[in-house]
Amino acid sequence: MKPKDLRTELLPVWCTGCGDFGVLKGLTQALSDLEIAPEKLAVISGIGCSSRLPGYVKAYSFNTIHGRALPIASGLKTARPELTTVVVGGDGDGFSIGLGHLPHAIRRDINLTYIVMDNGIYGLTKGQASPTTELESKRTRGLAGGDEQPLNPVLLVLSAGCGFVARTHAGNMPHMREMMKQAIEYPGFSFVHVLAGCVTYQPRNYSDQLLQRSYELPAEYDKSDLGAAITAVRDGRFALGVIYKRPLEEVAATAGATADEDWTPPDAVLKQDLPTE
């Protein structure tokens, strides 16, 4: 199936130039590469601009409530492990109201892919500071929390024990496609941090600023080295690429949801003989 066949007819509500368009495209490209049929796919989100994304993907999609995409996806994937389950959302949804769920989803190592479109701002509610808004930006614009340090989400997921951590930029289509593909293929909880611009509540060149602060991890970078990963995400720049990938032989020992893929879903779901009156 081509990427465009994985799109619904619904038109995105996003502002022209929003980084989320790129993510939508990157995700459908990755799903197309992986030949995942729409009926075998679930896309789950919370609330926010980026959380509108499930409506644009042909899948069993669920636009839930603010901050709770991970629990809902965890329940779904546990009950129906044969479904490819992708969770999407923004920095406010995932790192503020919903942050409490993140380390636990990581701890359980349920085979979900969590894509966070981080634009460092609350867009839907019109420009409040998010947990990842830079200090200087808050101060110069008079946003709340001018003395509160922003969160380093990638360091946080690494320290929680996330087995697959990647970062990409919403303007770099081939890179994003590759990162999402690898994340979905990874047989445990995978996290993709997407640097995304907001054309309305961030400076117009914000996306470029993000790019200027980014660098691609070199080929010799050892992504199985957790220590190297932690160093790489603490230098104030944005390392792009697969930052950490737990070696697969270690995954099987911890990934609860992948250890028993021979599990068959309950009768009530598989049987075709349900009443249709």
């Binding site: 996806a73 329940g75 779904l76 994937k77 129906r80």
Partner: peptide, 8 residues
Amino acid sequence: VGASFGGV
């Protein structure tokens, strides 16, 4: 809610 969304 997630599991039941899955039909279970």
